[in-house]
């Protein structure tokens, strides 16, 4: 075994230097030079303040904004560090609900989310609006989920539904080349555009 020690040690150290240090450092240098916006998290600035990342969803509860999907992320309970509390869109702790399809806890949660959603609109709720995403940080909703919320937002903002539908259409990202991925609406970008609409 001892004659295996020197090569094992040298290879471990050499590759730690090469793959663990030189490689990530070189990639960081190249990334910062070539794609500085993406390399730093695609942050969105407004009035010189960072108000979000184009890639990370935020929690929206007000009637005047479009809402994202339910988020199952948690945070440490401030009163008891051994417990966790619900903290939607907590980007410091990405996670899904991990509830199985036959879980009563899942069904109860979805029932409550359906009830909340139906306050806006009596029709069937698009499934993505009442299911939590895999990361808990999904930035997107489906075009169906955006359309579902138009009436509420129009009422709260005293604006026309047609204007909002046009805004959604402008912010709907279609499949890449018509094939890859799914059509999406980025909730944060849509809400920022809402704020930029001329007041009535």
């Amino acid at each position: 075994m001892l004659n295996h020690l020197r090569p094992a040690l040298v290879l471990t150290l050499a590759f730690t230097a090469l793959c663990g240090l030189a490689y990530p450092l070189a990639m960081t240098g190249l990334a910062q030079a070539l794609f500085p916006i993406q390399a730093n998290g695609s942050l969105i600035l407004k009035d010189n303040r960072v108000i979000g990342s184009a890639l990370i969803g935020q929690s929206f509860v007000s009637d005047t904004y479009f809402h994202g999907r339910p988020s199952a992320t948690t945070d440490t309970d401030p009163t008891d560090s051994t417990k966790t509390v619900a903290a939607p869109y907590n980007a410091a702790n990405s996670s899904g609900s991990n509830l199985g399809p036959t879980s009563q806890a899942l069904i109860d949660r979805i029932k409550a989310d359906v009830a909340t959603a139906q306050a806006d609109h009596p029709g069937p709720v698009p499934v993505d609006l009442v299911t939590s995403s895999a990361s808990g940080l999904d930035p997107d909703i489906t075009p169906a989920a955006a359309a579902f919320q138009v009436a509420r937002v129009a009422k709260a903002r005293h604006t026309s539904e047609d204007q909002l539908r046009a805004l959604i259409a402008a912010h709907t990202k279609e499949r890449l080349a018509g094939l890859i991925g799914e059509p999406t609406v980025n909730v944060l970008e849509l809400n920022l555009a809402l704020d930029d609409l001329p007041a009535h």
């Binding site: 499934v127 993505d128 299911t131 895999a134 489906t142 359309a147």
Partner: peptide, 11 residues
């Protein structure tokens, strides 16, 4: 307008 199906835990 949507993928539908089992969307719990999917993006």
């Amino acid at each position: 307008l949507q993928a539908g199906g089992n969307m719990e835990g999917k993006e």
